[in-house]
Design a protein around this nucleic acid. Structure first.
Length: 242
DNA sequence: GATGAGCGA
């Protein structure tokens, strides 16, 4: 009877596989012959089963994730370490992946600037090009009929950029320290370090403007509360000064 | 603790 046959099929065990330590896979399958007899088929193969390959791939992806997480932790550690040293820039393992060229252009050390006698800054102190009030480009902006001064233009530019205020900086922090601390999060359009006009020492706070708000957000979240020297940095969104 | 400079056509 056909119903018996169906019962028999139900009774047939499902195929099974075993893979031993040597990578030999044993495949056992049960079949019912035409004459109704049940037979057992055993095959051995060295070939990897698809699910083994898939499992391995999944495991590998897991490893990658763990590696990424490790890397992230490592980054955090490195960030702290970088923050401590005066010469962290040269030791920074990220310096090749950062916008170092930009940084060098905007915050070139005095020794580099000496090669440009035309733009001799006051007392050898470097002033970034966009901060030089004497820069010739100031007066040739689009006809100049608007009556907008350079400082108005600067303020206007400053206000539509995502800007962070960094406080609790130690007094020997420099522009490039701030740059080095933040440019790993993205392109920085401007750094302003508040300094005493005569002594030139850092007044303890700075403004950092990013090109991208997302980068600024990440920088805020990452650097806020972090140790720098023996101080805890505070980073928040800058309020536009009236 | 703090919200940027300079005060000039």
């Amino acid at each position: 009877m056909s119903t018996n046959w169906a019962d028999e099929v139900d009774g047939v065990e499902l195929p099974q596989t075993f893979t031993d330590a040597n990578g030999i896979t044993t495949y056992i399958e049960y079949r019912v012959n035409d004459d109704g007899t049940k037979i057992k088929i055993t095959r051995r193969t060295r070939k990897k089963l698809i699910h083994d390959v898939v499992n391995k791939a999944v495991a590998a992806r897991k490893d990658d994730k763990q590696e990424a997480m490790k890397q992230q932790l490592l980054n955090k550690k490195i960030l702290c370490r970088i923050c401590k040293g005066d010469h962290f820039t040269s030791r920074c393992p990220y310096k090749d992946s950062l916008g170092v060229e930009d940084a060098a252009a905007v915050f070139a050390p005095a020794s580099v600037v000496e090669a440009d006698p035309e733009e001799q800054p006051t007392a050898g102190k470097y002033v970034a090009p966009h901060m030089r009030s004497s820069a010739s480009r100031g007066s040739d902006r689009g006809g100049g009929s608007g009556g907008m001064s350079d400082r108005d233009a600067l303020r206007e530019r400053r206000e539509d950029q995502p800007t962070l205020r960094v406080t609790n900086l130690s007094e020997d922090v420099t522009d490039s320290d701030v740059m080095d601390l933040f440019n790993r999060f993205g392109h920085i359009s401007r750094v302003f370090l508040a300094r005493d006009r005569e002594t030139n020492v850092c007044k303890g706070f700075a403004f950092v403007s990013f090109s991208s708000r997302e980068d600024a957000q990440r920088a805020l979240e990452t650097v806020d509360g972090r140790g720098y020297d023996n101080l805890i940095l505070r980073v928040e969104w800058a309020k536009s000064s009236a």
